[in-house]
Simulated scan of single mutants.
Amino acid sequence: MPARVTILDDYQSVALSSADWSGVAERYEIDVVTSHLEGDELIERLASSEIVVAMRERTAFPASVLDRLPALKLLVTTGMANASIDVAAARARGIVVSGTTGSGREVAELTMGLLVALARNVVAEDRSMHEGGWQHTIGTRLEGKTLGLVGLGKQGQWVAELALAFRMHVVAWSPHLTPSRAAEFGVQAVSKQELFETSDFVSVHVPLTESSRGLIGADDLALMKGTAYLVNTSRGPIVDAEALVMALMVDTLAGAALDVFDVEPLPAADPLRSLSNVILLPHIGYVVHDVYRDFYGQSVEDILAFESGAPIRELSA
Rank of each mutant, 00 (worst) to 15 (best):
R181W: 03
R181N: 05
A183E: 15
A183R: 14
A183I: 00
F185P: 00
F185R: 10
G186E: 12
G186A: 03
G186R: 02
G186S: 06
V187K: 12
Q188L: 12
Q188K: 14
V190S: 11
K192S: 14
Q193N: 14
E194C: 08
E194G: 02
L195A: 07
L195S: 10
L195I: 13
T198C: 11
S199E: 12
S199Y: 07
D200G: 09
D200C: 09
V202P: 12
V202I: 13
V202Y: 10
V202R: 04
S203D: 06
V204K: 13
V204H: 12
H205P: 14
H205T: 12
P207L: 04
P207G: 12
L208D: 11
T209Q: 10
E210C: 04
E210A: 15
S211Y: 07
S211G: 04
S211D: 15
S212H: 14
G214A: 10
I216K: 04
I216R: 05
I216P: 03
G217F: 07
G217T: 04
A218L: 06
D219E: 15
D220M: 05
D220Y: 05
L221E: 08
L223T: 01
L223V: 01
M224Q: 07
K225I: 01
G226P: 00
G226N: 06
T227E: 13
A228C: 08
A228M: 01
Y229I: 00
L230K: 00
L230A: 01
L230N: 02
L230Q: 01
L230V: 05
V231F: 03
V231P: 02
V231I: 15
N232W: 02
N232M: 09
T233L: 09
T233S: 01
S234K: 03
S234V: 00
R235P: 09
R235Q: 08
R235W: 02
R235I: 02
R235S: 12
G236P: 11
G236Q: 06
G236F: 06
P237G: 07
I238A: 09
D240A: 09
D240N: 13
A241E: 15
A241I: 00
A243G: 08
A243Q: 07
L244T: 02
L244W: 01
L244S: 02
L244K: 00
V245H: 08
V245G: 06
M246F: 00
M246H: 14
A247M: 10
L248N: 11
